[in-house]
Simulated assay, not measured.
Amino acid sequence: MTDPIATGARAAANRLTAPNGPALAAEVEAALHVRATTSRPVQYIDPVSLGALIVSIAGLTWTVYRDLRKTTPAPSPEVVARHVRVRLDRDSRPPGPELDAADRDQVIEIVIEETVRSAEYGDSAPDGN
């Protein structure tokens, strides 16, 4: 089975590379490696980069999506996004680099879109570009 967190995080990094630089893909891979090698459940990864923020939000999105599927077979991306944003706001701010509000919202939106797409379609997800 495809890991929707990794797939969503990689797809989001791909979409966010132009405004954030080519090192973003490597940052995401590093954060995914940390996630894979830690034994504690990872909702938020200790932040050091935008890549860690992307993986963190992808993990939260997958958790919310999976929880919503217990009551709704196919939760809409909008519902998932609303739940993720509420959790992020409730937990104050997600870890990661200092971003202005517009950039933060764009990162959150793209990560949610790509993670939900990955969860729904797996390896056959349509290209998000």
Rank of each mutant, 00 (worst) to 15 (best):
A30K: 12
R117N: 12
S76G: 01
R117Q: 10
R104E: 12
D105T: 13
T17E: 14
L16D: 04
L24P: 07
D103W: 09
V28Q: 09
R93M: 14
R117P: 06
L50S: 11
A6P: 05
G122W: 02
D100K: 02
V28I: 13
V80R: 02
A23H: 09
P19N: 04
P22G: 12
L24S: 08
D67Q: 09
T2C: 13
D89K: 14
G21T: 12
D100M: 02
T17H: 14
R10S: 14
P126W: 13
Y44Q: 07
G51K: 06
I112R: 02
D123T: 04
P22K: 11
V86F: 03
T7Y: 15
A25H: 12
A102M: 04
R85E: 08
P94L: 01
H33W: 10
V79Q: 05
E113N: 11
P19Q: 04
A25S: 14
M1N: 07
N129P: 11
H33R: 10
V48G: 13
A31Y: 10
E78H: 03
R85N: 10
R90H: 04
G96V: 11
H33P: 05
G122H: 00
T7L: 15
P47V: 11
V42C: 07
A31G: 10
A25V: 13
V79N: 05
T63D: 01
T115W: 00
L16W: 03
A30L: 14
E120A: 05
R117Y: 05
N129W: 12
A12C: 08
R40V: 11
D103L: 13
S124L: 10
A31D: 08
E98L: 11
R35L: 06
D100N: 00
A13K: 09
T115Y: 01
L24R: 07
Y121T: 03
A30H: 14
V42F: 09
R10A: 13
E27C: 10
D67G: 08
V55K: 03
T63L: 01
V42D: 06
T115P: 01
D103C: 15
P97S: 12
V48K: 12
I112K: 00
D123N: 06
R85Y: 08
G51D: 09
V80H: 01
P75I: 13
L24E: 08
A52D: 13
T61I: 03
Y44R: 09
L60T: 07
I108F: 03
P94I: 00
V55T: 05
P77D: 05
Y44C: 09
E120V: 04
A30W: 12
A74M: 05
L32T: 09
D103T: 15
L68E: 01
S92I: 06
R117S: 08
E120P: 03
S56D: 14
S76V: 00
S118M: 02
E27W: 08
P41T: 11
